[in-house]
Nucleic acid binder design. Structure first.
Lengths: 192, 192
DNA sequence: AGCATTTCTTAATCTCGATTAACTTTTTTC
DNA sequence: GAAAAAAGTTAATCGAGATTAAGAAATGCT
C-alpha cells in the first residue's frame, strides 16, 4: 500500500490545486532500505516524518540494555521523536526501517514556510496532533488495563494483520514483556 | 497560584487587545468544589478544560474495579477525555476535582468560532497539542523504564511539591502500583 | 470535642512474568 | 546450497510487586 501525503492532507482540510503544487515541490522524500536509520541517539531530531509506504519502529535502549520499542510507523502515520524535535535536545531514540520504506520529510523550516503560505496546514497539523494525542491517551489506558497476557490477546484480535508483519520479539517489546513469555502464551493457545 | 487563560495563550502567540477582549467575553468558567465531577462515564465529553487554579484527576475503573488514574490537571494545564471529545463517543473516564478548582470551558463550538475569528488560536492549539503529545511520549518511555520502585523515586525527586499535594494512594495509582507497595518503599527509605 | 470516614502502615503469603540456559527453526548471506 | 545469523521454543528457577488482612494514624464533620 502507498499513501500520498497530499491525499492525507485532503482528508482533513481543503487545498486548492495551486497550493497542492506548492506543497509537492517544496517537500522532499527519503527512501530507506530495511535496517536504515532516520534517527539515532545523541543527534538532535530535525524533522517530522510521514510514512508513504513501508514500516518503521521507534525504540530506545533501556536500563537493562534491551531494545524497548515505543511506536511503530505504518503507511499513513506520522512518526518522529517529537520531544527532541520540539526541544532541540539530543534524542535518546532510534527510528529504524523494518522494511524498505519511503517517508516524506517535514523539517522544521519547511513546515514553518509552508504553514505561512497555506494556513490550512496549521489546521491539518492541529487535527493530526489531536488524534495522535488521543491515541496516546488510549494507549496509556490500555497499558494500565488487564494483564500482559490479556493485552497480547486484545492486541492480536484488533490488529491481526499487523501481528504477522513484525517479528514476535518486537511485538513483545512493544507490549512490554519478554519474547519468552509471548512464546509461552502462544503455546498455551494451541492446546485449548 | 492562579494562571489566566489569556496569559497562557500569549506565551505562545500574539493576540491584540481587541482579540483578547473577544476571547474573554466568549469563554465561560466553571467553579468546582472538591470532589465535583466534570466528566463521568457514559456521557459524551463536550469540552476541553483549562485549569486556572486547583487540581483535577482523570481516572477510570479498571477490570479489577479499582480506580486507575491516568492524568492529573494542575494550574495551567489542559485536561479532558480527548478521545471522547474527538469521536463524540461516551467517555469511560471520571474527571474530578481534588481541590476547589476553577476551569475555563472550551466547548467544541466556541473553540471553532473563536479560531475562525482569531486564526492565531489555531497555532496556539497546535503548539499546546504538540507539547502534550511530546509529554505523552516521554510518559510512555518513562513507563517502560526502570522498576516501579525506581519510577517512584524518580518521580518524587522531579516533582517533590506535587507528591505532597495528593494522597499517596492516588500517586500509587498514577504510577501503576498498589498503595501497600508505595508504603513499603517509603518505609525502606527511612532505614537507610 | 467526639465519632466516622479516609488514608496509611505492616507483615505473611502468593503469583505473574522475568531470568537463565539450552535447543530448534527460519531467514539471510556469500 | 552451506554456513552463519536471526528468530522462536521450552522448561526450571527466581523475584518484584500483588493480595489479603488487620490495625494505626490522620482528617473531616456536626
Amino acid at each position: 500500500m502507498y499513501i500520498s501525503q497530499l491525499a492525507h492532507i485532503r482528508r482533513y482540510v481543503s487545498i486548492s490545486d495551486d497550493e497542492a503544487q506548492i506543497i509537492t515541490t517544496k517537500l522532499k522524500t527519503k527512501t530507506l532500505k530495511k535496517k536504515d536509520f532516520l534517527i539515532t541517539p545523541g543527534k538532535v531530531c530535525r524533522a517530522n516524518y510521514f510514512v508513504s509506504t513501508g514500516l518503521l519502529r521507534l525504540y530506545f535502549i533501556n536500563k537493562k540494555q534491551l531494545e524497548q520499542i515505543t511506536h511503530f510507523g505504518l503507511e499513513g502515520w506520522w512518526v518522529t521523536d517529537l520531544d527532541s524535535l520540539d526541544s532541540q535536545k539530543p534524542s535518546r531514540f532510534y527510528l529504524q526501517a523494518l522494511e524498505d520504506t519511503e517517508v516524506v520529510v517535514w523539517d522544521t523550516e519547511t513546515q514553518a514556510q509552508l504553514t505561512k503560505e497555506i494556513p490550512q496546514l496549521e489546521t491539518y497539523f492541529r487535527i493530526i496532533l489531536q488524534r495522535a494525542y488521543a491515541a496516546s491517551q488510549r494507549r496509556i489506558e490500555f497499558l494500565h488495563s488487564n494483564t500482559d497476557e490479556e493485552r497480547y490477546r486484545n492486541f492480536s484480535t484488533w490488529f491481526p494483520g499487523f501481528v504477522q508483519r513484525v517479528p514476535q520479539y518486537m511485538l513483545a517489546s512493544y507490549l512490554g514483556f519478554t519474547p519468552q513469555f509471548l512464546s509461552k502464551i502462544r503455546g498455551k493457545k494451541v492446546k485449548e
